[in-house]
Simulated scan of single mutants.
Amino acid sequence: MTMAMVTARVNAERKRDAEKVLKRNGRTYSDLIRDLTDYLADTGELPEFERLTLSLIQERERRKKQELIQRFVDRNLPEAEGDLSDEEILAQARMERFGGRDETAV
């Protein structure tokens, strides 16, 4: 059987803490990685803890997107003014905000 090496970067302090847990249980990082690799290859699925972690991350991202959308929904937009086009309304808003002559006005 040909062996391959797996390299990962992790926080040094977290690694030391994790190694203590592994040592208490008579395991090493190599044991853990081999077991995880076998599990993935045998089942074709992520372990439950990883699926839960990904689910939590996706939920957090979904909430962030909803909050961003809600900010736009709650935003006060100017009322439509008569027969003005969108471009004319934008030009007026630029004039109010920045003053001076607006070269983009129609």
Rank of each mutant, 00 (worst) to 15 (best):
R34Q: 10
N11L: 05
A8S: 08
L32Q: 01
D42E: 15
L36D: 02
T37L: 03
T28L: 04
E19I: 08
I33L: 03
N25L: 13
R9C: 04
R14V: 08
R34V: 09
K20I: 09
R24D: 14
N11F: 08
K20Q: 12
G44H: 10
D35K: 08
Y39A: 04
K15Y: 14
D35T: 08
Y39R: 05
T37V: 11
D38L: 04
L40V: 15
I33F: 01
Y29K: 01
R14M: 13
T43K: 07
Y29R: 00
I33P: 02
A12N: 13
G26H: 10
D31H: 11
T37Q: 03
A41T: 13
R27P: 06
E13N: 11
A12E: 15
D31R: 02
D38V: 01
E13D: 14
G26T: 04
D35S: 12
T43N: 10
K20R: 14
N25C: 08
S30Q: 04
R34Y: 00
Y29W: 12
R34N: 13
R16A: 13
D38E: 11
D42Q: 11
D17M: 10
Y29C: 02
A12L: 12
T37W: 02
R9G: 08
K23G: 05
E13T: 13
N25G: 06
E19V: 10
N11I: 07
G44R: 12
N25Q: 14
N25K: 13
E13S: 12
L22R: 08
R34I: 05
E19P: 03
L32R: 00
T43I: 07
Y29F: 08
R16K: 13
A41G: 07
N25R: 14
L22F: 15
L40H: 09
G44S: 09
A8Y: 05
K15S: 11
E19R: 10
Y29T: 02
A12D: 15
K23I: 06
R34F: 00
R14E: 14
D17Q: 15
L36Y: 07
G26L: 03
A8P: 00
D31C: 05
L40I: 15
E13Q: 14
Y39T: 05
R9W: 05
L40Y: 10
E19N: 11
A18F: 15
L32C: 03
R34S: 10
D17K: 14
V21R: 14
L32D: 00
R14T: 09
Y29L: 05
K23Q: 12
Y29G: 00
A41P: 01
Y29H: 04
G44Y: 12
G26S: 10
L32F: 01
E19K: 11
I33H: 00
R34G: 05
D38W: 00
L32Y: 00
K20F: 03
D31Q: 08
S30N: 11
L32G: 01
G44P: 11
L22V: 09
R27G: 07
A8L: 12
G26N: 14
V10A: 11
R27V: 06
L22H: 09
I33T: 06
T37D: 02
T28N: 07
V10I: 14
N25T: 08
L40S: 06
N11G: 07
D42A: 13
L36R: 03
V21W: 13
D38G: 03
R14G: 03
N11M: 05
R27Q: 15
D35N: 12
L36H: 06
E19S: 11
D35E: 15
D31I: 02
G26C: 06
R14N: 10
Y29V: 02
T28A: 06
